[in-house]
Design a protein around this nucleic acid. Structure first.
Lengths: 203, 203
DNA sequence: CTCCACGCTAAGCGCTCGCTTACAATCCAG
DNA sequence: CTGGATTGTAAGCGAGCGCTTAGCGTGGAG
């Protein structure tokens, strides 16, 4: 199965997926505004006008990429949070999955994390909602862990931000030539995060 | 003293500083490629052509901002590293200063951290060198602290990346409306970083 | 066999971009 | 008083941008 089909199994036809993949690569490497619709179409092996058969605008293509990426990240965090018993175990699972995703899908993640400012207002509001959902899960879990004595932090909001920063910033620096696999990086970061939160890391 | 004169005391005349400040604001909020030279000039209260009296190109303006910002950040880290005795104390000082700078100068920091991809090749190489200097200081200090038993981490390179990520990502989310002052945020993050590195935080 | 919906292209429109040119105002050295 | 350096403006050039239009090929329903 192609990477495009793996990332967006519900997008049809396959040409639309190829355009999305070409968009991801260009947006991640050069940025949204430095990418032309001709770049994207050429990269997808089509004429410039083909983009407009499947997407009403360049911004709509960005939105399709960004929304789907945010939904994936949110689903990942939700599942990790629900899969564990104690707050430390849940937090470790979240960080492992969140970090591994940002490494494994670092091109998509780069668009998700750093190109959302280019979205039109309405579309931005949609992804901003998904981002708040992710942040709330982490913050609530952290607060619950502090309440139960599993975590010890000065300020819950600040510590939650710090945990998310560790994951988000991976999208900025991770590349295909990075030494560690996404999974190994996730495990390493899970350990770092738990220690940062004052948790017993044997949990 | 104006903010522009505070940030770039050695830039003359004052009009050039106003252009740099207008560039910082535009680049930070909309990104380099979404900013026009007309935006910058208008924001600085001048005609579009005035930019080219002081800078040979839009990219040269970005470079002036980016290089000076990187130099400031490097100087900050160097001084913090030299100011403390033990590795934990030095690391705490570095994180406090690095984080506080990214918060207090979050517009400049945003351009520094997220717009360097827009630099021409030669100019990029210059700031890339400054970035490597910063990374090396943190990595070497961390390695020394592991050697001396002050720090306990799985992989030195990964942990160094994580420490820097905490600071860099501040530029992405910090705003003038953030609850915590830059200094307070720095202290909070200093504590989080030391715990993450397995250090005795009473140091 | 017909015909139309779908997927795609060739050509190009109108606009804005980074930047240049020609020129004006100010100021200070000789 | 003169002349050049400095600092600015008004006007606009050529290029590349996002996107539109008109039309072509193809495959499946009737």
């Amino acid at each position: 199965m192609s990477l495009a089909a793996e990332l967006w199994p519900d997008v049809q036809p396959e040409t639309a997926r190829r355009l999305m993949l070409a968009g991801v690569e260009s947006f991640a490497q050069r940025g949204y505004h430095a990418t032309t619709t001709r770049d994207i179409a050429t990269n997808a092996g089509m004429s410039p006008a083909a983009l407009y058969v499947h997407f009403p605008s360049k911004a709509a293509l960005l939105f399709a990429i960004s929304r789907s990426g945010h939904q994936q990240a949110l689903a990942l965090v939700e599942q990790a949070a629900a899969s564990a018993e104690s707050p430390p175990a849940a937090m470790r699972a979240i960080v492992e999955q969140f970090v591994a995703w940002h490494a494994r899908r670092h091109l998509v993640a780069r668009v998700v994390q750093y190109e959302l400012g280019a979205l039109p207002e309405e579309e931005y509001a949609v992804v901003a909602g998904l981002r708040r959902d992710i942040e709330r899960i982490v913050r609530d879990l952290l607060a619950a862990g502090v309440e139960s004595g599993h975590f010890h932090v000065g300020d819950v909001g600040t510590a939650a931000r710090a945990v998310l920063s560790l994951g988000i910033d991976v999208a900025r620096w991770y590349s295909d030539r990075s030494r560690q696999s996404p999974a190994a990086l996730g495990r390493e970061y899970g350990e770092l995060a738990l220690r940062m939160l004052g948790a017993d890391t044997t949990a």
